[in-house]
Structure formats: C-alpha cells, structure tokens
Design a protein around this nucleic acid. Structure first.
Lengths: 185, 185
DNA sequence: GAGAGCATGTAAGAGGTTACATGATTCC
DNA sequence: GGAATCATGTAACCTCTTACATGCTCTC
C-alpha cells in the first residue's frame, strides 16, 4: 500500500496535519503518480496511529478549527525504510480510453476521433501543468531530495508526451483508414 | 466502469462463457490495459444479467462441468454504444515505484538502484511479451477491429519503451550524482 | 498417482470514491 | 450576503484482490 508509505515519507520530513498533507504535500507533488483524496488520507492516518507507526497530538487554535498533528515513530521509520528497499511488481495499468478504442469497431469514425481528441485536449492540459512545475534540471540538483523529485517529474513529462504522440498517431491512422475505405467503396 | 463494458464489448461479438472470456479474451488481449481476475469477471457477469444487459443459458456437458453462456441483450448493446462514444477523464496514474523513488533520500544509492534495476528487468519482460504479439502493421490492417487492436498494442509498446528509457536515465542520473558527491567529499 | 485443464462459485477484506456535515473567519 | 479557507470527520458504496472449494477427465 503506497498511500500509507507516502504519508510516512512526508512525515519522516517532519510532523504535520492531515489537511496540510493533502493540500500542500500530496496535491502539489506526488498527486501525479499517487493521487489521494481527503477521506482516505484521514482514514489511513488513523490506521497508522493504531498500528503504532504514527502518534498524534491536538493543537488548539482560536478562530480556526483545532489541528491534529501527526509524527512518525521509530517503528514508522523502520517500516518506511524497509518498504523503500523492496523491489515491487510493475504497476497494473488500467486505461478506459484504450478499452473504448479496442471495442470501437461499430462506432462511426468521426465519433471515435472525437473521443480521442477530447482525451488529447485533457492530456495537453496535464502536460502543461507538469511543465509549469519549476525544478532544477537533473544535472543541477544539489541534493538527493531534489534529484528524486526531478526524476519523478521527468517520468510525468515523458509519459504525457508519449501519450499525446500516440493519440496523434491513432487519430491519423483512423483518418487514413477511413480514406482508404472510401476509395474502395 | 470499464470491466463491465469490456465484457459487453466481447459479448457483442458473440455469446460466450465467463471462463473463456477470462482465459481466451481478457488474458490474451485487453489484459494489458485492463487486467481482470476471474472472481470479478464472474461477479460482474451476474450483475449485468441482473441489470438486463446480458442473458445467460446453461449448456450441459458430460465429463466436463456445465457451462454458462452469456449473450448480450438489446439494452446491453445500446449501453455499450453509448459508453463507447463518451469522452472520459484521463486514467488516474498510480505507480508505487515513483513513490519509492520520491522518498528515497535516506536510502543508500546502491539500494535505490537495485530497486530500479529490478523494475527494469520486469519491464523488459513485459516489453518482450508485447513484442511477441503478432498483429498487422497499422498500414496493413484490413478492418477496423484489427486496426484498433493494433493501435492499443502500439500504446503498450510505446509505454513500456518510454518506461524503460526513463529507468535507464534515472539510474544513470543517480550514479552520476553519487560520483559528483564523492569527488566533493 | 500427481498435476493440469475445465468451469463455476463463496467469503472476506483492502483500497478508493462520493456525498454530506460542522462552524468560525476572511475576503469581495 | 455569498464564497472561499481552515480542519476534521461519518456513512455508504464501488472496484479489485486473495484465499479457498468443488469435482470430473485427461495426460505424463
């Protein structure tokens, strides 16, 4: 379970609340390769406390809701370190767009292309978002934290670029097949 | 839910049993972009019957267990067609290897590299599997079913290749960072 | 005699999503 | 006056995985 370990990973850097973990940490960095929603983060934090990997303390605030601050325990740190060294299976890949394309034989070409183009637009947006993230280039990273952040971002860029390239190719292939079919009819 | 629609998609081509759907159809084609295990396929087929999108009939066999043959209904066909035309959100991406890399700052380089190399080996295997699938090239496809199968396979190849390229880059970057750090100490 | 293939199923649980609730403060 | 921010939580649900069970036949 990676959510668990991502939480341990962030808390290894210092105590923090669920709210901040979600809005500042997850959504602004790992969300690209491990999105997590609020409910699940809170639930998992509770579980980690139950398991003795975290402790929590309440910080009273006036005017604002109280905060619940989580800290990693010794056990939490060993658990994290062990997990980080474990070779894992490749991530299962699930992409409904490919399912749609795979079974599209009875759908009109124009409609298939519309679906692909909608996806193209969304992936361009994603790519733009990732491109706007400013991190030092690989060769300019001055510590390991920076380097690994850069490398994961690099994967994001590569993946989106490959996806977009493929979408263009697919759209072109369908159009060209359509033209070929028309000539023959 | 794509599993549901993948099942409808296959059954749209003709009646079939859960067993065959799993072993011949899923595992040999869509598994790459929509893996599904046996239990879930059976459960989903049941649900589709409940919802009136499929019907089932039992075929008695001697010597072998009886088979339950599912057929798509009119409602099932419309449901499938509508779904195929619906633009969808980009697939959420979850990759625990990136989580591991992202939080690896306190792990020794050699161990991080081991994890990456293990992943590299697995992805080479995956790529080899996909490469062994024989399908006509894009320009040689003679019908839409072939073309869409080819295009989804093309995505698989592209994705695995990009992943492998990235892994090599990441490994090289970590090694080079390590050398730089040593020179400075 | 062991194991693979055929074929369907139950039960339990992990992981993730959706919808909703609370209540003060700050900003337009 | 309405929306956004801060901050935590409950309940119900969907999807997917793991472990296990049955029982006959065919092949090595």
């Amino acid at each position: 379970m990676s959510l668990k370990h991502a939480l341990l990973g962030f808390l290894r850097r210092g105590p923090q609340t669920g709210y901040t973990l979600k809005n500042e940490y997850f959504d602004k960095s790992v969300a690209y390769f491990w999105p997590a929603d609020q409910t699940q983060i809170y639930k998992t934090l509770d579980k980690l406390v139950d398991d003795g990997l975290l402790t929590s303390a309440i910080q009273i605030q006036s005017g604002k809701p109280n905060r619940k601050i989580y800290s990693i325990t010794k056990n939490g740190q060993t658990e994290l370190e062990n997990w980080l060294k474990e070779p894992a299976e490749p991530a299962p890949y699930r992409d409904s767009l490919l399912v749609q394309l795979f079974f599209s034989e009875n759908i009109e070409d124009s409609q298939v292309i519309e679906v692909l183009q909608a996806s193209h637009a969304k992936h361009e947006e994603l790519l733009a978002e990732l491109t706007s993230i400013k991190l030092p280039a690989i060769a300019k990273c001055s510590n390991k934290r920076q380097l690994s952040a850069r490398l994961t971002l690099e994967m994001g860029l590569k993946k989106e670029q490959a996806y977009i390239d493929w979408l263009k190719e697919a759209i072109a292939a369908i159009k060209s097949f359509e033209r070929k079919a028309k000539r023959q009819s």
